[in-house]
Amino acid sequence: MAKKAVRKVVKKAVKKTAARKVSLPAYKAGNYATQHAVEQFLYKQAEVLDAKRWQDYIDLFTDEGVYWMPADPADRHWDGIPSIFAEDKNLMTVRMNRVLHPDAWSQRPLWGTNHVVGNVIVEKESPNGDVVVRSRFHMLELRRDTVRHFAGSYVHQLKKTPNGYRIKMQRVDMTNAQAAFEYVLQVWV
């Protein structure tokens, strides 16, 4: 490739990266309360998952809430495209009932998880108190004698209710999901 052409390609790539720069919302003093409340919510969610309290987890969602793990990080909307998970409350209930069924063979062996959530950034807070929050997770899973690591990012769209936050949409971009699956995910990450 001619030098000029190379320069052009590099310039284009730099521009593309710049366009993808993430937004960092400026902190105002009043935001700390939101930050704290949101973090507590995410920690509670992690605890509920690790404790296998599946109904409590489903109850964290609004009636129209959706749990979504896209197949492709470029996907923007959950409906009508291939996804690893794309579940409303009804489908989540199917998954819960299945996991709890005594003949769910793949669920019989000992397994457990440990979620750590961090890098919590409140992306947007609406006047009605609803928030969009980004975070990162790291999950260790033990299944039979094997330890595996899963990591990625969450985007939660949370609705503020008198009983605390409820999830309108939980988007999970799991980094592992871009490689072949050496395992099958049986519950929400």
Partner: peptide, 13 residues
């Protein structure tokens, strides 16, 4: 899908 409710039990078998 890799979160399948069906094939998981096949893979176990």
């Amino acid at each position: 899908s890799p979160a399948t409710l069906i094939n998981a039990d096949d893979l176990e078998n």
